[in-house]
Design a protein around this nucleic acid. Sequence first.
DNA 1: AAACGGAAGGAAAACGATTGCCCTGACGCT
DNA 2: AGCGTCAGGGCAATCGTTTTCCTTCCGTTT
Lengths: 359, 359
Amino acid sequence: MQGCQGKVTVVRSAAGNGEETLGAIDRAATISEVAALAGVSPGTASKALNGRGALRPETRRRVQEAAEQLGFVANAAARSLQAGRTYTVGMITTDSIGRFSIPLLIGAEDALGAGQVSVFLCDARDDPIREQYYLRTLLGRQVDGIIVTGRRTQARPPIGRSLPVPVVYAFISSADPADCSVVPDEADGARRAVEHLLAVGRRRIAHVTGPEHHHSATVRAAAAMGALSAAGLEPAAPVLFGEWSEGWGRQAAGILLSTAAEVDAVFCGSDQIARGLAEALQEAGRRVPADVALVGFDNWDVMVDGCRPALTSIDMDLEGIGRTAAELVLAAINGEPAHGRRALPGRLVPRASTAVHPA
Amino acid sequence: MQGCQGKVTVVRSAAGNGEETLGAIDRAATISEVAALAGVSPGTASKALNGRGALRPETRRRVQEAAEQLGFVANAAARSLQAGRTYTVGMITTDSIGRFSIPLLIGAEDALGAGQVSVFLCDARDDPIREQYYLRTLLGRQVDGIIVTGRRTQARPPIGRSLPVPVVYAFISSADPADCSVVPDEADGARRAVEHLLAVGRRRIAHVTGPEHHHSATVRAAAAMGALSAAGLEPAAPVLFGEWSEGWGRQAAGILLSTAAEVDAVFCGSDQIARGLAEALQEAGRRVPADVALVGFDNWDVMVDGCRPALTSIDMDLEGIGRTAAELVLAAINGEPAHGRRALPGRLVPRASTAVHPA
DNA sequence: AAACGGAAGGAAAACGATTGCCCTGACGCT
DNA sequence: AGCGTCAGGGCAATCGTTTTCCTTCCGTTT
């Protein structure tokens, strides 16, 4: 913050008290005011501030000082109008903003923020009408690109056809293979879970997961079964499909204990299921992980940490997915559109529930 | 979607297959193109589409049809430039986007979406530098207003002084009493919790909560103690300050059982603490709610439902706070600025953990 | 029949920033 | 001395909408 101004005509008091906050601003300054203060034309001021044109260093400096003194920030609307781009991307979450959308959003914001791009967030709440409404709104705002996310990984119908801006699907994927989607590699995650259990010496492994009509549940279950048979093993029990809840985990524990008592490990389709299972198993006298090892899915902090013992889990790297999606949008904006479906690998985060030597 | 166009010059194929998605759009149509198609001047087209001016109904209709045919959406940048407002508000979350920010965001989006206002979301991650950076960005984008939120209810230094747009603080409050803040009435919530426990017949009530240096913890504790003494009671134990975690809840259970064994109810500063407490109490042989009733705080779905028995909790109505904040921003934009701190009451959601006749 | 008034719509000036083009000196070279 | 060159900076068009005047034209009134 430069010292107090001299002949500023616009009423505009600088903070002057060493605070890092912006000073009093009654009305946003325009580049013409900056130019007037620096004694140049608006066009020259623009060049000075954007590093264009051929200007004397001294002139450039004078303009920059004037801009700082007036707290000048270029009017984005005017700039967009002239440039034809807005340095803005829209993010439509088809399902309500929730546990999965947040990390995606953070990741995307991360990648875009570095490029000075802002995010318009729209919550379509799983309502196609709202979705189309938001789509129009975003197009009207001339966003440079759109990221579509949702709560389920299942493929969804494309949000629009031949839109004037690039669209990338994150977490969910588009049913149109020509669209660009970034999804977690759930099958890979499930494989890692099973292989981890094998690596810590388990052989009687069961799988408890969400509803059978849920894409994630079936994909993970198939991959888990595949990994078992690749190791020459049978599952300790048929896959138990149910809900994504702790309650189902508890229920499933009862089923397992009565039908497959010799089970020594359970891979669960979600952390919540795993937590319910852990509680019920221990109430029934089984020790975790000594008798039964557990692996969850999602690596949701409150669940893995709240569970006793702390839960080994598969992290889908949602932030990474958001970041990748954003990078692909940026690339597409810059004329390098990507197509097809990218599956990002997750990672297994080992914790006490699969420890070989429990504490 | 109207049928296929007749003499449209711009290449623009309508979907034509009955889908609800937007048709192919290669380049956004301008109002001049709409006007040309309708055979009027751009100015007239603008009036027709915005319901201004004196136009023949037939002309208006013709323009509207042309607009629909071309998939016209007004360029928001141009509109903003001319109107001096952007129909956009910025939302800065000082702490990372998290459990508290989401409902606030949803509430705000709700109130703003109805007014055709979009939300720019910025995650400052508790970093003052990022915060000021985002503030400048938002001002450059000429947002019409700003909502500042965070994870703690504690008062914070104002984000800026005399900004050119209205600012409303949601959940957190500004240290400057002249600023407009919307916060939960935590004291009221704590009172309700204690009164509920009294109403279900408990008299030996303890309070376990988060760290003593945390504003929420002290406010809630003070209000809880106040409610007890208003009923002529002493707490069953001194307030136990610790952390906002399940682990602390378990620990606290041990402390309570050894120092205040006759406790018949615990009001917890968070659902997580309550859940830890519930588990530990039951492991120690106490029945919930028969021997000890429990009330949590936050009404966080995964905690209250995951807890056994389901947890009675105080809901701070975060969505309501977000909605109220947004409404106040809109009011301020329309020239009716509000000042001061508004505390919104929460509500108690009774569940099994305080049931008089447990199932 | 002349004058007035209202309805309908066109023309053009904003809004603020950017940018290509042009103008003006000053300097160097022959 | 005269011409060419180039640095430095001003001018004006442009982006797409809105809005404020105007201009027309037609019907009505006296």
